[in-house]
Design a protein around this nucleic acid. Sequence first.
DNA 1: AAAAATAAAACGAGCGCTCGTTTTTTATTG
DNA 2: CAATAAAAAACGAGCGCTCGTTTTATTTTT
Lengths: 244, 244
Amino acid sequence: MPHLPNMSVPAEDFDDFRKMTLLSMEEICRDIFKENQHRIKIKKEAVAVRNLVNIFHTTLQISNEKGFQTMSLRDLSRVSGLSMGALYSYFSSKDELLEMIQNQGRRITLKILSQRIRAGDAPSVQLQTAIRTHLYLTEVLQPWFYFSYMEAKNLKKTHRKKAIESDLVTEEIIREILEKGAEKGEFRVDHPMLTAAVIKAMLQDWYLKRWKYSGRKIPVQAYADFIIEFVEALVLRKSSESSR
Amino acid sequence: MPHLPNMSVPAEDFDDFRKMTLLSMEEICRDIFKENQHRIKIKKEAVAVRNLVNIFHTTLQISNEKGFQTMSLRDLSRVSGLSMGALYSYFSSKDELLEMIQNQGRRITLKILSQRIRAGDAPSVQLQTAIRTHLYLTEVLQPWFYFSYMEAKNLKKTHRKKAIESDLVTEEIIREILEKGAEKGEFRVDHPMLTAAVIKAMLQDWYLKRWKYSGRKIPVQAYADFIIEFVEALVLRKSSESSR
DNA sequence: AAAAATAAAACGAGCGCTCGTTTTTTATTG
DNA sequence: CAATAAAAAACGAGCGCTCGTTTTATTTTT
């Protein structure tokens, strides 16, 4: 059991997040159903949602193990228990399945971050909130985020562009917070863009290397605390503490 | 053009690295040829090396664009200009091609890091060297490192284990440097393992998001300088500079 | 002359996808 | 309420194609 970062943050913070955001596989699939009526041939919402949960859960499971391209629809059929024909009631091609999954995450990330970052807060509070929220979000939806990251290369060009833009949204948010903090004299940030990009990398490592942190028994709160500490060491430096 | 990090480091440092390490596609393929005589049917080294360069270059190019599984051997044949029959003179299965590529990088990383990190140096110098060396190395061999990261899931279980171990080697090296610095009272490191993991994430972002940094015209030296600054802000903190 | 590569064909397995058929669910009727 | 009909959901065999792989006579390169 590694010595954990600063544990003064209440241990229930992540559970609060979970309760407040009410993110579940079912809610996500209900949204997908509503937005994709034109491509899903099933009329009954309850039936559709139930099977979409199954389909996406199974797709993420298999794909995150061996890759979306390596997974065949026969794999998906066998593991999900749905026939080949039934699968095609929910999407009309394997590519479409990919797009449906990739389209999630984007709106969720932006939505949750926007909700939780309050405009009136001090930049230092906003920065902590941004970091913590992103990590908690990716903790709840780890398979989705992992999939989106690893399978982005399978997207057609137009959709790949959207994925890239989405990737940059979080960075933008962080960059803006950093810049505002610098303007107010709270932060020392020489390169907001680069700093935001590197912070993003720290956040992504959590869901990309989930096996590693899980194996080391590091809870998401501890990781969040540590990243905040790391980042604040940089941006809250005093002038005389320049490393060079 | 973004305002760049501390440019007091001589601009030729990366070029020096390049000259000193003599890493080239050709040298790598020569090593591969020598280590794989049993599976490569070509007897003449010059011929074999030339074609291995072609095969690997093409494989990395296509795979890094759309994935190893998505790339077919007919794709590889067409783009490389080698016939299907000729390809099978160099590897006996698509899986073997994968392994040959994945086996690179590991020994190179360990070798170059070991060479460049001198035991007698102060921990702060070692830390800078480790960070800089890793980044320069992945700059020279970006397609290899990117491939290794993204395609690790295609490996069979035994090889995947090796890939994971290899992933942890760099972290180990960094962790040891941090711990030594802490013992000597040079560094303030509460969680060497976690710190090393996050530093690794910063290093990996360079080669995983090459398009982003390239698009922003950030040279590897500038990135290295920035990461060093970021990390030193944490480990070189004074006691009173605790962020909380 | 030996080595390397080509070009073409072929194999068997599996792929994404389609479509006729069957089953289940729901609505209607007596 | 039970029986029937209609709608919805699901099934699964098979299509056309591609895949990784192998083989061989011939050509090209060293």
